[in-house]
Structures are given as structure tokens and as C-alpha cells.
Design a protein around this nucleic acid. Structure first.
Lengths: 216, 216, 216, 216
DNA sequence: CATGAATGAGGCTTCATTCAT
DNA sequence: GATGAATGAAGCCTCATTCAT
């Protein structure tokens, strides 16, 4: 069946990626053999290799796929012209993420991507871009919040963004591993923190620590 | 000579675990072959197998090792009888974590543990216990903060703990992958959030969302 | 339009064979995939398979192609009615062979044919016919030389032919592998040998030999 | 069975090489799968890979093995202090070669080596060294023959060596493929040529040729 | 107890060949 | 006739694990 349309090619690609993602979510990148992906995708080895030149490339393509997904999520959260309260933004983010946690959802394999990014060059690239984009988005959010007077006028948007960027992976982890958290709880926690007593001025001279400062 | 022998055994065990951890940090669990661990530890295959019955057991032992590490860290943060401000607590946590990020530091392989916990039963157990312990600790912290009046009297300690538990993995990730964050920035961000305008009352059922709620 | 069609078929066939020969010369029979031949020939898999039913058949066809080539070469060397001196004949042979050693010349793949003939039945047939034809031709040459008085009257044309048949493969090999021999040098060597002292009568009782006669 | 002697290692190596050589002689380098070599050698995949890191390395080792074999052969031919007649030298060479043509003899795979040398860098190196060594040996032989007055005083030893080096591959080929030649016939042919009329002086600019000089 | 040679299942990948369009 | 996507057997190689010494 030669001379197929570009559309057909793209459909095949996604078919393979979907199968791979599903397998990866179930058994992990490394524990998943290509044979399983062939089976799951309903394609032969040769067919898959026509689209991806190696298992690594397949993994890379899946990592790359998360990029636009996250972008769409971020864009959607802020589609309104008026900025929602911070707890709402975080909650929407968490909701979006939760919605992609199905048995073969993209979020389910996120931790595998994080792990890989730790020692695998190409994946590192993809994940660091992802993190960076997300954090930049939070920086913009923080700037608007500050400009709206919802954050102190001298607030450092970057510092705020670091905190807010930090929250999502941990939320994903708790949800994936413990399974007992949801967007509403996260929102509630945020609200409480935002409503709490400001801490006393920080006296830059640090603190305790034996083990803490040990090497290794 | 039971005493000496037992000590010797334990030393050997740690020697192997250290070698393995170092390799894992460098190349990942799966990309590391046992041969490499034999080489790095300076022991023979047979010797290593006398202490760990399989590669999985080795990985499990490393995961188990993190338990007391985290416990010690948590305990240390709160060793004083007076509770530090929240931003200080988080900063200490982050500092402790940062200190264990050396080339073969335990934190370096944390994301691999998270990933494994996603689909590997025994590791799931270890990591979920770790997460749960940490969160319980945060719950206790939140309770004390509330009782000290630093959080609203009706604050839900659990919700607060969910948020605070969330922060560390994301901080580790940003530090490991982007490398441009530190405990002080995190503290600053926390301080800003704690000092910000409380959000308006939440009208429990809002939400945007097209993509957000889609499956996959 | 049988005529045109037949011509077209033959042209296609040669186009494919040329492409294959070029690839084979560059990478060897086995290291060349059919995909490469499809690419080099500018034809599709299906098209090539219309002309050759398998890779082996393709290789066989190339081996077969050498038959008329060698025949033409031999015929040409002796086209004159007068027989040239032996060194001249050898030199012409060597020159003819040298002329077909271009990057995709037929001679370039000759050693691959010899190798295949060693364990592959169909190719063995083709190559043994080639060798046999060549040697028969040398037998005829030797007979004429003997009859012309240029070889001793009791000379065994077959023995002479065995020697002369032997020379060409070794010449090809030296030229292909070492690259530092040419027809003139070969001719010079032959002339010297032909001009040398006849050896003393041979006393049929053989000679030394330890390793020589061992098995393996 | 750890800590084995160097001798044991070497025996294993040869065991593997012998098995490989036997297979290669029967089916050719490429048509022989490693599985067959494992079977023939009585070893497992892993065991073989402990000694040779790839199939190519195995082939290379076999090519390398021919070096000392040929060296021994050459040395043996000339072990006597008196130089035998040229036809005797060639005959001894041929005899030595013939003796190594058993079903798994080294000579049986020589053509495969020649073929590989044509397009495979490492093998090219091995074979070109082999050819070069052999030719150098012939140069020395030719010099002694000339000095002994058995070749004309102005004879070019190199040109003679080129011819004599050429003879052996063709002899091997005829013997391997046609199977109807032996050392004695070769000797007889050489004797006849050495006893023949010297050719007339060569008028440097002869040559026929249409096809002969064509490209390809 | 330690050693490390050996095992062999199974993984990734290639490639000759087919056949629907 | 031509195309080239698809097939799937089979190849090379790795590596967790065992066990004789």
C-alpha cells in the first residue's frame, strides 16, 4: 500500500506512540520490550522501525510530545483576560494534570521522564525545556499578580515561580504514589498559606546542621 | 567472632551499596550493569551476590536506605524546641536535600526511585512510605504552626502538608535538571507567598476547561 | 511492441545489475542491502523484484555477466592471426583486467565471486566454468606455442596452462589489495623467467616438510 | 571455575577459532551465524564473547592467524642452506598450501579473506601485510637465484617476485574450485616455462585493444 | 568465603521479501 | 507495470545469574 498520505503517516506515528506510552505507563521504559509495543500497536517490528529508528528515539518522541501538551494546558489556564486568584490557578493546573493521569495518560510516565533527564542527555534537554517553559510561565503569572497588587510590590517573581513550579511535580507524585490528593486539597492548602501570618524578617544567618551539611 | 564478622558484613554491604548508588547516579538503574557495580565496588560477582540476591534486591536496598536518611533530616530540622518560621523550615529541608546531591548523593537518584514507584510494587511500597512519613511530619508541623497562631485556627493541617510535601520533589527536580535554584530562593518565594494578600473566598465550583478534563 | 519492450526490459536489467555491482564493489555482497541497491538503481523494491526473484539470483546474474566479458577479453587478445610472445599475451590479459578495475568495475568484485564459489553451489558452477574456459584457452595457446617451437616439443600444454591460469588471480589480488603492480611489471617478470637457466632434471623424490604436511 | 591459567585462555581461544574456521570453510563468513559457532565450539554465547567482542573481531582473529602460518611455511621451504631450483620452491609452496586445504583448513577460507580485503578496512590490513610479506620473501628468493646465476644478472627481483607471488592464489583457486591441479603439475608447468625459448626483445609499444581499454 | 568463567534467555534491530494500491 | 509500506524471521549481542574451583 504505497504512496500514503502524510496524514496516514502521522496517524501511524501517533498509533505507535500511543501504544508505547500505554506500555511505558504500565511497565516502565526499560521493562517494556519492543515486542510488547509491536503487539500493543498491532504493527510489526519493521513497521515501527520505519517511524522510529530506535527505542531511544521512541522514548524521545514521547518526551517531545509532552511539550505541546503542557503548553496547551498552561495557555488554557490563563485563557480568560482576568487573572484568577493564585489558588485557583494552581488548582486548575492540578486539575489539568489530574485529567491526564489515566492508565495510559501522559502524566503517568512523567516521573520516568524526570528520572531519565537525570542521566540521559537528549531527554535532559526535553525535560529541562519543559521545566523552563513552565517556570517562565509562572514568572509571568507572578509579575501580573504583583502588578495587580496581589503580591507585594517588591516581590521577586522568579522566587515565586520557583516555588510554584516546585509544587506540581510533588503533587503528581503524591497523587500517583499515594493516590489520596486532589486539586481541591491543594487549593485549600495554598489558600491557608496565603492567608497566614507573614513570617518575621529573616536574619540571613542560617542554622543547625550536622548531617545536613555533610557531603555525599 | 560474631561481632567483628557482623561489622564486616555491614561494611561490605555499604561498600556495595555505595558503588551501586554511584553507578546508578551516573547511568541510571537499568543502564547500569552489574558488571559495572562489581568493578566499581572492587568485588567479584560472587561476593556481591552473597549480600544481595538480585539486582532488584540491590535497588530495593538502596531505596530502603533513604528511609533513615530522610528521617534523620526531618528530625534534625526540628531538633530545637522552638519551631522556626515556615520559610526557615522549608529552607532547611531544601538545604539538607541540596547537601545530598553530590555526584553519588542519594538525592541524585531520587527521581529514579519515584519513577520506579510508579510501576514496581516493592519500590512503590518504599517510596509511598517515605512520602507518607514526610507528609505526616508536615502535618505535625502544620498543627504546631496552627497552635502557635502562625496559621489560621481553622487551617486544615493535612491540606497544608500536601502543599509543603509537594514542594520538595519539584525543588529537587529544578535543582537536578535546571541547576539554577537554591534553598535561599525557595525561602524567598515562600516568604513572598506567606506575605501576600489572602485570596477572595472561594466559590467552590468554578473551573474552565476543555482539554483539561479530557481523558488520556 | 515486443521489440521495444524486450529492449526496455534488458536496459532495466542492466541498470539494476550496474547498480548492484557498484554497491557490491563498495561494500561487498552481504554487507549490501537490497535497499541500497533500490536507492542506487533509482528503482523501487517491486521493480527490482520483477527482474530478479531474489538477492541470490541477482548475485548469480552478476556472476553470469562476467562470462561473456572474459570471453571477449580472451578472444580479443588473440584476434591477430599471429601469436604474440607469451609475455605479451600475459601482459595483454593483465591490461584487460586492469582496465576493468574501476570503482564499480567487474574485476573489483572478482574475489567475492571466488570466495562465494568456495561454498555456494550455483556460484561455484559459474566460477568453475569461467576458470575452466580460461584454462582451456591457455591450453590452446600453449599448444600453438609448442607447435611454433616456442615451447619444448614435449611440453605438456595442460601443465603450462595451469601455471598461466594461476597468474591472473594473483595479479588481480596484488593490484586490488596492494595496488602497486601493473601489466608491464608482470610482463617483465615473465620475460625474466622465460630467459632463465633451465632447472636441472627433477628427481621426483620430494622433500622436507613438517608443518607442511600436517592436517588442518 | 575462576582464576584460570593463561594457557587455558589460549586453549579456549583456539577452540573457538577452530570452530569458527570450520564453519566459515563450510558456509562462509556471512552465512555462518554465531549460533552455529557456539554449537560447533561447544560453548555458549557469553563464553565466546568473553574472548571476542564481535563477529568481526572473530573474523579478524582468524585472518591474523594466517600470518604466522604463512611465515612458518615460507621459512620451512627455505630451511636448507642451499636454494632448491625455482620449480622446486614453487612446488613446495604449493604442497604446503595443499596440505592446509582440509575441510576446515586455513587455506579453504583464503578466498573469503581476499574478498573481504577488498572492502573491509581491518581485513585489508591483514591481507595486504600477508601479501607483502610473501612478496618480500620472493624478492629475497629472486635475489639469491640471480646471485647464483640461475636468473639473468640484470633480472629485476621485484618483477620476478610479482609473478611468483601471483601464482599461488590462482593455484589455490584452481585447486579449490576445479580440484584438478596439484603441486606436481604446477612444478611441471614452471619447468617448461623456465626451459622455453626466451622471447624476442620487447618493443615497448604494442597493444591491441577495444574492450580492453574501456572503462568500467 | 571469594572468584570469575560460563551460561543462555531475551532484547534490539536489520533486511529480504510480499502485496495492496 | 510500478510503488513502497509492511512483514516477521533471524541475527548479533548483553547481562543477570550460577557454580566449579
Amino acid at each position: 500500500m504505497p504512496r500514503v498520505s502524510e496524514e496516514h503517516r502521522e496517524r501511524r506515528r501517533q498509533q505507535i506512540l500511543d501504544a508505547a506510552q500505554s506500555c511505558f505507563a504500565r511497565k516502565g521504559f526499560h521493562e517494556t520490550s519492543l515486542q510488547e509495543i509491536f503487539r500493543e500497536s498491532g504493527l510489526s517490528a519493521g513497521a515501527v522501525y520505519r517511524y522510529f529508528r530506535s527505542k531511544d528515539e521512541l522514548i524521545g518522541a514521547i518526551a517531545a510530545r509532552s511539550q505541546p501538551l503542557v503548553a496547551a494546558l498552561l495557555e488554557e489556564i490563563l485563557d480568560a483576560d482576568e487573572l484568577p486568584p493564585l489558588d485557583e490557578i494552581v488548582a486548575r493546573f492540578a486539575t489539568g494534570v489530574t485529567g491526564r493521569m489515566g492508565p495510559s495518560g501522559a502524566v503517568r510516565i512523567a516521573p520516568q521522564g524526570w528520572a531519565l533527564a537525570t542521566y540521559n542527555r537528549p531527554i535532559h534537554l526535553a525535560i529541562s525545556e519543559l521545566l523552563d517553559n513552565t517556570r517562565s510561565w509562572w514568572v509571568r503569572v507572578a509579575e501580573r499578580l504583583r502588578d495587580d497588587g496581589r503580591l507585594p510590590p517588591d516581590a521577586d517573581p522568579y522566587a515565586v515561580a520557583v516555588v510554584l513550579t516546585s509544587i506540581i511535580p510533588g503533587f503528581i507524585l503524591q497523587r500517583l504514589v499515594l493516590g489520596d490528593v486532589d486539586a481541591e486539597t491543594l487549593r485549600a492548602g495554598i489558600r491557608i498559606l496565603l492567608s497566614s501570618e507573614p513570617p518575621p524578617p529573616h536574619a540571613a544567618h542560617p542554622a543547625p546542621g550536622n548531617i545536613l551539611n555533610q557531603a555525599l
